[in-house]
Design a protein around this nucleic acid. Sequence first.
DNA 1: GAGCGCCTGTGAAACGATTAAGTGCAAGGT
DNA 2: ACCTTGCACTTAATCGTTTCACAGGCGCTC
Lengths: 339, 339
Amino acid sequence: MKRPTIAEIAARAGVSTGAVSYALNGRPGVSAETRRQILEIADEIGWRPSVAARSLSGSRAHSVGLVIARPADTLGVEPFFMRFIAGLEGELSRQSIALLLQVVDDHRAAIEAIRLCWAERRVDGLVLTDLYSDDTRIPLIEELRIPAVLVGGPRSDTRTPAVWTDDRAAVTAAVDYLVALGHRRIARVAGLPALEHTQVRVAAFRDAMLGHGLAEPPVVETDYSWEEGAEATRTLLSRRDRPTAIMFDNDVMAAAALNVAQEMGVAVPDDLSVMAGDDSQLCMLVRPALTALARDIQAYGRHTARVLLQAMEGSSPGSEPESATRLVVRGSTAPPPPA
Amino acid sequence: MKRPTIAEIAARAGVSTGAVSYALNGRPGVSAETRRQILEIADEIGWRPSVAARSLSGSRAHSVGLVIARPADTLGVEPFFMRFIAGLEGELSRQSIALLLQVVDDHRAAIEAIRLCWAERRVDGLVLTDLYSDDTRIPLIEELRIPAVLVGGPRSDTRTPAVWTDDRAAVTAAVDYLVALGHRRIARVAGLPALEHTQVRVAAFRDAMLGHGLAEPPVVETDYSWEEGAEATRTLLSRRDRPTAIMFDNDVMAAAALNVAQEMGVAVPDDLSVMAGDDSQLCMLVRPALTALARDIQAYGRHTARVLLQAMEGSSPGSEPESATRLVVRGSTAPPPPA
DNA sequence: GAGCGCCTGTGAAACGATTAAGTGCAAGGT
DNA sequence: ACCTTGCACTTAATCGTTTCACAGGCGCTC
């Protein structure tokens, strides 16, 4: 019942533990015949290296950390994380690297969690998500020289590698589509203004609108919640120059908007087009089904893992954007009503 | 820039590493004055124990594993896991225990993942979810003597501790409510039949219906997906003795049912009452909002962590149910139409 | 056949913490 | 004066693996 060690293999094979180590790690220093025999014994007694011993010796923890800083009740809503984690983990497990997950309440706790798991040498690298425009985690990981990947970059203020989706292109394409349908008054309900990607998207939205020769469009900032999404929609639909289309920064707020429109007697999509900034089953379950910006989140996670692994090996991988976001058109968008 | 070790503390304090270890772990063997000084130095240079060294010496990994076996695309849908994990992790981190997350495709891969992370001594215990009625993971963890907690138990076939919500009571209460409203023909759209809790809920449903002197009710089994939920609803609404109420095993299928009802010209809640088996924001975002069985999933996760920690300490904690599920009544349920 | 290099393998020191066993010293009892 | 007891610490083994330095032995060359 006791765990087998290389010492046991060595004893059985009649060689030293050093030889066993070389054989098991595929390094030179043992003959083919001895190697074969050692591998056979290892397999027979079901030997697996102890990560603890290996970490201690090789000073690598064989795991990476993901610290999620969000109030727990908003976490369940986001289909993003579970899919992202699935992709991440799938890629990591092929290298026998474990994923250490931490869920904390706020930014300060996240900083603490990073400090701690690094000091304890629990992780070899970190995945950083939900980047703020002036994010104190970045100087921290640079100071401690923690290999990391920024999800949502790229940023000019660091050499840490990043992965990101091309939000600018996605938002621009979405605006182009709505304008092509005939919309002229388009509003945006954005997410947390402190997040880097919110700013990118808002800027892209403004630029696209102005690029079409349209006026400075209304933008409302929210915390991504259902409640604030509904509130923002009410505000926008109460304006004298009521928009004929609204783009939301996620799917939950877009779904909330459908209810507000109904409550205010605004028909979707006849009087108002609604576009969701994330795609999930929710978009298909509400009526009308929501037109949305969809991306392959699992692939995004896999890509993130690959970049992090490279960073951990010391190379500084180039930061390239993930494959483009697609516009999935469903029932919530249509040409605007005739003026 | 190098990581501080107890040897460094020992050198600075002018004592041996053994003394430092005693001082830092609050054990007797050092004077109050020396202890104070050692703690001060440790704090000053930012010392943290290396988990690797500690694990190797103490033969404890200081982390627990959660292996989720689900096709990745269905994962994002479930708000359950992220909330559960948030609760779990919150409780574990208080004891400086990390959560190792693994996402695999199927049961076989889960077995492999468990074997591996245990053989590598990566974890001290495991959380097992999505229990099947004849689950091969249970004999496995018993054979390997892995401390574990079963989420969804209790079971007669093992002494492994379990946490669970009282599904029987919840389903019974829900049926009682619908019957009190006047419903006589109630159907159930269940989840994966192989899962233990599906069977418990279906049995409770049958018993409750028969207990009210009603006929054997229709039950349709599904895979929890939106598509199969819609399909099941279509089948049920096409029966000659069309039910006046349907209980779904999750929220996604209930939401899908709203669309099917609309498509078939069945009014909710006037002609049909719909009840969701899980509560999430989805229930509030669809129209009519869904009446649902709600539970505090984060608390469930916290409780799970506490039971697992006890099991890891060698005590065999009693298996008690989590606090009761609440029936949250919204707009999708009403008295049945007059016969 | 001496010297050289290569191949296969050994021995032992690391890695950083925990911990059982041992040591020295002072106080206290007889 | 001698023994006991307890405290405050040290010493060294231990956990399992990696890896460096080194040792034989063998074949090859000059």
